[in-house]
Design a protein around this nucleic acid. Structure first.
Lengths: 241, 241
DNA sequence: CGCTTACTTGAGTCTGGTCAAACGGGGTGG
DNA sequence: CCACCCCGTTTGACCAGACTCAAGTAAGCG
């Protein structure tokens, strides 16, 4: 089990430094680890989970279903992300989370969350911070689905994933390897697979991307941002619970 | 100025009862009121606000723009809603808020938020709760924009607004008076006004709604939920900061 | 009374969806 | 080792839902 004090994620500069006390508390808050295989369901809509998780390694995605099976991917989940917070509000998950790769998750007991709020206001604030951050991402996705064209949407989502991968050291200057299929893109963007494929091809023909053998090359990030109408973000250090 | 202890909203059963201490603190947290006219911009994208607000009366909406002016309404704002929290995360608002009617807002100083976290873990938890609640709404909207058809979307949004209005006593059994135009519906649903209008007409012809003189009648709520694939929610009491 | 804002409606277009079929590569069992 | 299969991708043909353009109506207001 990875001890929080020597958590490899914490060395990344996206995450704000923690004091010794905070670190000690978080280490005590963590009650174990959970390892999920690719394709595994980590949280299930309708169930009530007793746990909170932080992703240590691997990719996943949050989604909901319409009763007739239409699926909407709400967001992707990467290392450093806190998941399962919603269940503390609703008593019941309103979305599911599925692993895209093998994943390693830190497990926290929900009951101890209360202790965190009582004893570590700074960490409590951090959790609110993370919730607000997720909210911001959802706002942006909503803008995509509502107002961007298919081409813009795909450009946007690829950049979104790239930026997020980048921030946790999973991307290099030229690209990264998102463990997703075109089905995932389609379901995240509210499009059909066929049209997703054809739009992807257009981006390819515009020499903006190349996607071969699971690796996605962003050939001209600036031009891609232009297409997506997405300016670069300077991400402020965020907490890692 | 409305004293928190006798806040009319607090008498509604959607809001969880507060202890005397909590109420006293919130009363101290509130530093004033702000009254906005219909159409006024309450928070502006790109600006950094020093304040947090809770809506006392009136309706508004949150939105973002694409650089070329395309607008996406992210959510509507009703009495009891806390707004401006995002700015504490981002140093800069990522969305704007505009008033749909005259609005009365409670004003809180952002600096005192820290004190709240230190002295009242229960209230801190409440703020996280509210953030998670907003997140849930956004998830649902995302599902709408991504996977619902035009007819389903409109049904969904009207019900969403109805349910929310209902919970703060702004609706009766047969309908309510949302202070919005078809433009707002269109921008919230990612549709054009023309198509919104035509789809609305279809709902009218199905005898599911009637919308005249600002008042919206829901003629058959159950059937409307059916169309929207939206089951009724039993809303658990939420905090009112 | 004239102006503006919101709502309607029709015609024509196009983006994106559906259906169907085929391809390619990796894995597996005979 | 090969045949087969499955999954993900690709492509073409056709269709429809939603958009744009354009014009007209109704209602509210100074």
């Amino acid at each position: 089990m990875v001890p929080c004090e020597s958590c490899p994620l914490r060395r990344l500069e996206t995450f704000r430094p923690f004091t010794k006390e905070e670190l000690t508390f978080v280490a005590g808050f963590k009650t174990g680890e959970f390892s999920a295989e690719s394709g595994a369901m980590i949280l299930q809509e309708g169930a009530s989970s007793a746990h909170l998780y932080t992703v240590l390694t691997g990719w996943g995605f949050r989604y909901t279903l319409l009763p007739d099976g239409r699926r909407q991917i709400l967001n992707f989940v990467l290392p450093g992300d806190l998941i399962g917070l919603q269940a503390s509000v609703a008593k019941e998950m309103k979305h599911s989370v599925e692993a895209l790769t093998g994943m390693l998750l830190c497990v926290f007991q929900r009951e101890k969350l209360w202790e965190l709020y009582e004893r570590h206001p700074g960490l409590a604030y951090d959790i609110t911070w993370l919730a607000a951050l997720e909210e911001q991402m959802l706002d942006r996705h909503l803008l995509s689905l509502g107002r961007r064209t298919a081409l813009e949407r795909i450009a946007y989502l690829l950049l979104h994933l790239y930026d997020r991968a980048q921030s946790v050291g999973l991307a290099d200057k030229h690209g990264f390897s998102p463990p997703i299929t075109q089905y995932h893109l389609a379901d995240a963007l509210g499009m059909s697979i066929v049209h997703t494929n054809k739009t992807l091809k257009r981006l390819y023909q515009l020499k903006l991307i190349r996607w071969k053998n699971r690796r996605l090359e962003l050939l001209d990030v600036a031009a891609l941002r232009e297409v997506a109408h997405l300016s670069e973000e300077t991400d402020t250090p965020r907490p890692l619970i």
